[in-house]
Computed example of a mutant assay.
Amino acid sequence: MDQPVLVYALTALAISIPCFYIALILLSPPPIITRPSEKKYRSHSAPNAPRALPSLSDAGSVDLSVIIPAYNETARMPSMLATTIAHLTTPALKNSRTHELLVVDDGSADGTSDLALKLAKEHPESEIRVITLEKNLGKGGAVRHGMLHARGHRLLMVDADGASRFEDLELLWKAMDGVAPKNEPAVVVGSRAHLVKTEAVVKRSVIRNILMYGLHTILRIVGVGHIRDTQCGFKLFTRRAAQQIFPAQHLATWIFDVELLLLAKQLGIPVEEVPVEWHEVAGSKLNVVKDSLQMLRDLLVLRANQMTGRWKVDVGSIPKM
């Protein structure tokens, strides 16, 4: 290589590396901040007297925590909560598995928190804690907040729309018993991959299915191709897995599920995938084109931050149980 060409190449490299790093900093989301009011919850027994939330770093005190992120969900949440509570209070489970429900209102403008408190009063058989975020963070931010303040030995994230069949929790629970019988770090994810050829998926719009296949291709590239369905909002974590994963989560947007699975892979936490039933529910907050482009951007930002070491897991800070 001629010396002028070599000098030009080195100069371009010297300029491009700092530019890339600066662009990465500008594109990366800011740290997720928890405000004082968000460290408290309300319940049917004290709707006007917020109480302090516990910490994920504490020892677990109930068998199951159900974390429900909710953004403007007054229309869909009542049915979902009724189905959830009906299952958790069946005779087979009522006396054998303690539980709590954490409804995390992600800055809603439709009275989601007030409705959740009303429903909590109507269902005193289940402890429902309502947490209200001052500003909309995104689904990932709401899930993270609920996880960081849950008491369960096992923690389930589930969407407020009721699209997943809640009774399939028992499939995830059984799989967790197999992979983590003593609640070692483990994750079990609900999967809709078996539904790809069924009406539930075939009847969706062409563009939505094209984007779905495109996302799967990208996920294989970034390192989670071993999970056939990363985006199903039905995932079960042991407490020890949650303690390692959620404090290290950075993304609050739709693609946060991928970050959780990449963190699990990085930490050597086993992930089991279990087929579950699912159906489309009207009223989705997802803007297919806009949010798909945001997912792509966030995936690139996520991998770039992990590969450059800007986002890394501080294993030494993980609480021991």
Rank of each mutant, 00 (worst) to 15 (best):
K203R: 13
A160P: 07
I131F: 02
G223K: 10
F256W: 15
G283A: 06
E100L: 03
T11L: 15
H145P: 01
T89G: 02
I221A: 03
I245H: 11
V187L: 04
R76L: 14
A252G: 11
S191E: 02
E134D: 07
P69L: 01
R240L: 11
S37I: 03
V224I: 15
E122V: 11
H194F: 06
P270E: 06
M295P: 03
Q244M: 15
G60Y: 09
R154E: 10
Y21G: 08
R208W: 12
A193R: 07
K320D: 13
M307S: 05
I25M: 07
N183H: 14
D298E: 14
E280M: 06
L155V: 02
S79Q: 13
G268F: 08
V288M: 11
K265V: 02
F234M: 03
L102M: 08
L10V: 10
T198A: 08
I68R: 00
E273R: 00
I68V: 15
P185V: 08
F20G: 06
V158W: 13
S284R: 06
V179L: 13
S45P: 00
L64V: 11
L155Q: 12
H216M: 07
L115V: 07
P247H: 11
E259A: 04
L148C: 12
S16P: 04
G316V: 06
L262R: 14
E134W: 03
E38G: 04
S108W: 03
D2M: 05
T74E: 12
I221K: 02
S61I: 10
G283L: 04
S55L: 12
P78D: 13
R129F: 02
K285F: 02
T308I: 01
L53S: 07
V130T: 00
I221D: 00
T90G: 14
E38D: 00
A59N: 13
G141H: 05
L64M: 08
L88S: 08
R76N: 14
P36K: 10
P50F: 02
P54R: 05
L24P: 03
G138E: 09
P4D: 07
A86E: 12
E127H: 09
Y71D: 05
V130R: 00
K290S: 13
V179K: 08
Q244A: 15
R208S: 15
F166D: 09
I210R: 08
R97V: 10
N95W: 06
G223W: 05
L27V: 02
Q249H: 05
L171Q: 13
K94D: 06
T90K: 14
V224N: 10
V281R: 13
A59Q: 13
R297D: 01
A160H: 11
A180F: 05
I255G: 09
I68H: 01
H44K: 01
L24A: 12
M307Q: 05
E272A: 10
S16A: 15
H216P: 00
L300H: 08
L133C: 08
S37R: 06
K174V: 14
I67E: 07
D159K: 09
V224M: 06
V188P: 07
A175P: 01
S284H: 04
L267M: 15
E184R: 12
N136W: 01
G138M: 09
V189R: 10
A70H: 05
V224D: 06
D314N: 15
L156S: 07
K290V: 12
L119V: 14
R303V: 06
L296Y: 11
N48D: 09
T230N: 14
D110H: 08
L215Q: 10
T217V: 07
H145D: 01
L64I: 10
M147E: 03
D177P: 01
L169N: 11
S79P: 03
